[in-house]
Amino acid sequence: MAYWLMKSEPEELSIEGLSRLDEARWDGVRNYQARNFLRAMSLGDECFFYHSSCPQPGIAGIARIITAAYPDPTALDPSSPYHDAKASAEKNPWSAVDVAHVRTFRHVLPLGLLKQQTALAELPLVHKGSRLSVMPVSEAQWAAIMALSA
């Protein structure tokens, strides 16, 4: 099993929203490196659910990958903010996965706290200018973050 971190704006999908839905499609990723990480995910992989672009950015909980990557339908939908005019049913460069709620943390683990952890120094999230919405997390980084959530 691999570990990941996936960012979402809470207004679009929060950990509480995922908890209510139980599962949801993770779509709208429009960065090739992040898309490649989606494609590398396997059933059962777990990810930290990160709230971004909000007053309290941070890790809010855990989700599980429940489908392999598939073509992102929002790329083909002209009414979607993630529409890609160059995409077609035959050639859709974007991918999505489905995720299920696993756990909501009692408290969001704020970005400032994460940046203070030496065990997370290599995590792209804590690097200045890192805007990647999907990234791998090592087993050691996963364990360090889980210890913070206890």
Rank of each mutant, 00 (worst) to 15 (best):
M6P: 04
H83Q: 11
V134I: 05
L21K: 14
A75T: 13
A140P: 01
A96R: 02
P57K: 03
H83P: 09
S53Q: 14
L120M: 03
E9V: 10
D22M: 15
S138G: 02
M135A: 05
Q33S: 11
E11A: 12
A34S: 14
Y70M: 10
T74Y: 02
D98W: 08
A89V: 14
A85I: 12
P136S: 13
I145L: 11
S79L: 14
A150E: 15
E12A: 13
P55K: 07
S42P: 11
I145K: 07
D27R: 08
V126M: 00
C47S: 13
I65Y: 01
L148P: 04
M6V: 13
E90H: 01
A63W: 02
S42N: 15
H51F: 05
R106T: 14
D72F: 07
A119W: 05
V29G: 01
R106P: 12
G129A: 06
L21Y: 11
F49Y: 12
L76S: 06
S52D: 05
A147V: 14
K115P: 08
L114S: 02
A75L: 09
R131I: 09
A60Q: 04
D84W: 12
L18F: 10
S42K: 15
I59V: 15
K86A: 15
K86D: 13
E23G: 12
N92H: 07
G61E: 09
A40K: 15
P71D: 15
L114M: 08
Q117M: 06
S88E: 07
S19M: 15
S80C: 12
W142H: 10
R39V: 10
V102S: 00
R35V: 14
S52Y: 06
A89D: 14
I145N: 08
I62P: 00
L21A: 10
I62N: 03
S19I: 09
A143K: 14
T104P: 02
D72M: 09
E12L: 12
I59A: 09
F37C: 05
M41F: 02
L120W: 01
R39H: 03
W4H: 09
S14I: 12
I59L: 11
A96M: 06
P93L: 10
S133W: 01
S53H: 11
N31F: 00
C47T: 10
D45A: 00
A119M: 07
V99M: 06
K128E: 09
P55F: 00
E23L: 11
D98N: 11
D98P: 04
K115Q: 09
I145R: 02
V99A: 00
L18W: 08
S138I: 04
M6A: 12
D72P: 01
P78D: 05
P136R: 09
A143W: 04
S53K: 10
A2G: 02
W142K: 08
M1F: 04
A150M: 13
W142P: 04
E122V: 07
S149M: 07
S14Y: 10
D22L: 15
E9D: 12
F49V: 02
V126K: 02
P57Q: 13
Y82E: 00
W94G: 03
S14C: 10
N31E: 04
D72A: 08
G44M: 00
G28S: 04
P110S: 05
Y70R: 11
A144W: 06
A68Y: 04
C54S: 07
R64L: 00
R131M: 11
P57T: 03
G44A: 01
G129M: 01
A119Q: 14
Q116R: 14
I145Y: 08
L109P: 00
P93Y: 05
H83M: 11
M135E: 06
S80Q: 09
